[in-house]
């Protein structure tokens, strides 16, 4: 398997609190990597560093051979990395469909010159992505909600929507922060199905999740981290049978 993203000895402190300590790992193409760890282990911090929201104290990260550290957030996203947020961030004042439409890349209509001087081009592109957006909302079970305000969705539906947004962005690497935490089982099932299908579309994902049973079923490989460090790494069985992991999840 070829490597899609690499992370080399990232470190990050917040006034004495260690969030990442010499953390390294790699993600292969078409791979789903499960990321486990207790609260405060630094999982979200890793995502924030990878997506450019936080600058690491030291270390580097690369994606498709391009260095990530120091690049602005939107440029990292345009390289092909999309993410969801633990505290969901969507635009609540617009509809579900509009949220999805907004996430498509390279829209001619985002440039005002095209809006006024090439309306045909904008219209054709808009029609195309509208069809794609509806097709993405269907398997997420959000078709009927397409024209509701995003604010009117349940928590689980909002989580689904944020994943659909990542799919609309057509990213090669999805960073999913607790995609099924705190939602109804049938909704979780839907989300897991979507995640498990990512490799078939040529995509990879790093999935943070506390629900061990759920993540075991979809991850190809797992990493367990604590206090910013990688404690162990391997197949789901290897990691879940590691005494240090068992200890962490028993107390």
């Amino acid at each position: 398997m070829t490597s899609l993203a690499g992370i080399q000895s990232l470190s990050k402190h917040f006034n004495g609190v260690v969030a990442l300590a010499d953390f390294s790992c790699a993600v292969a193409e078409r791979e789903i990597l499960g990321l486990l760890g207790p609260n405060g282990a630094g999982k979200t911090t890793l995502f924030n560093v990878l997506t450019g929201l936080l600058a690491p104290d030291s270390g580097s990260a690369s994606f498709k051979g391009q260095a990530l550290v120091g690049r602005p957030v939107h440029k990292i996203a345009n390289l092909g990395i999309a993410r969801t947020f633990q505290n969901l961030r969507l635009i609540r004042r617009i509809t579900v469909l509009e949220n999805v439409l907004l996430c498509f890349k390279n829209q001619p209509g985002e440039n005002l010159l095209n809006v006024f001087f090439r309306p045909g081009l904008c219209k054709r592109h808009e029609d195309g992505i509208r069809e794609k957006a509806l097709a993405l909302l269907e398997p997420a079970g959000l078709s009927e909600k397409a024209h509701d305000l995003a604010d009117n969705l349940s928590y689980g539906q909002q989580k689904l929507l944020s994943i659909v947004c990542c799919l609309a962005a057509d990213a090669d690497l999805l960073l999913l922060d607790e995609p099924i935490a705190g939602i109804a089982p049938e909704m979780a099932e839907r989300i897991l199905t979507i995640i498990a299908d990512l490799p078939n579309q040529g995509k990879s994902a790093i999935v943070i999740e506390h629900d061990i049973d759920a993540i075991k079923g979809i991850a190809h490989r797992m990493i367990f981290m604590d206090a910013g460090r990688k404690i162990c790494e391997g197949t789901p069985d290897e990691v879940l049978n590691d005494p240090r992991v068992i200890e962490a999840y028993l107390d």
Partner: peptide, 24 residues
Amino acid sequence: SPFGRLLWGLEDAPIFLAAMGKDA
């Protein structure tokens, strides 16, 4: 237009916009 659609998120969800590749 799609330009106008982005405006909804400019103050409400700038991090979401950036994470989706839009230059706020």
